[in-house]
Computed example of a mutant assay.
Amino acid sequence: MQTAIDRIMHTYDMMVNRTQAASSEARGKVTDYITSLFDGGEKDPHRLTVYGLTYLRELDGSNDPVKAGFTGL
């Protein structure tokens, strides 16, 4: 589980430029999220990594298609 969290944070830090405090806050949130998935039975570190990255992108709004410029027209 810790390997997946480290991989998530390493990848996310390359994607987003933010302060150390914001990075620490994101690590805490993703750790809680990954722990809940792990406790729920998900043991595959690759899947946990994908879920964690998706979770962080949803938190910061970068998964929002409207913010990305997609209007559906």
Rank of each mutant, 00 (worst) to 15 (best):
V16C: 01
V16I: 14
N17H: 14
N17D: 15
N17I: 13
N17C: 07
R18T: 06
R18K: 15
R18Y: 03
T19G: 04
T19C: 03
Q20H: 12
Q20M: 11
A21G: 07
A21V: 13
A22L: 06
A22E: 13
S23H: 07
S24G: 08
S24Q: 15
E25V: 04
E25W: 09
E25N: 11
E25R: 10
A26F: 04
R27M: 06
R27G: 01
G28T: 08
G28W: 04
K29N: 10
K29H: 11
K29L: 11
K29M: 14
V30M: 02
V30R: 00
T31V: 08
T31N: 07
D32M: 10
D32H: 08
D32P: 02
Y33G: 02
Y33T: 03
Y33K: 06
Y33A: 00
Y33P: 02
I34Q: 04
I34G: 01
I34R: 06
T35L: 09
T35R: 13
T35D: 14
T35P: 02
S36W: 09
S36N: 09
S36C: 01
F38A: 09
F38W: 15
F38T: 12
D39E: 15
D39C: 05
D39P: 04
D39M: 12
G40T: 07
G40K: 11
G40H: 07
G40E: 07
G40A: 11
G40I: 01
G41A: 03
G41E: 06
E42A: 08
E42R: 15
E42Y: 08
K43R: 14
K43G: 01
K43E: 09
D44E: 12
D44H: 09
P45H: 03
P45T: 11
P45M: 00
H46A: 14
H46R: 14
H46I: 14
R47C: 08
R47Q: 14
R47Y: 10
R47S: 10
R47W: 05
L48A: 05
T49M: 02
T49I: 05
T49N: 05
V50H: 12
V50M: 11
V50L: 11
Y51L: 11
Y51I: 01
Y51S: 10
G52N: 00
G52M: 05
L53M: 12
L53I: 09
L53G: 06
T54W: 09
Y55C: 02
Y55W: 07
Y55T: 05
Y55P: 00
Y55D: 02
L56T: 05
R57F: 02
R57Y: 06
E58T: 11
E58M: 13
E58G: 12
L59N: 06
L59Y: 03
L59D: 07
L59A: 06
D60W: 01
D60Q: 04
D60G: 02
D60K: 00
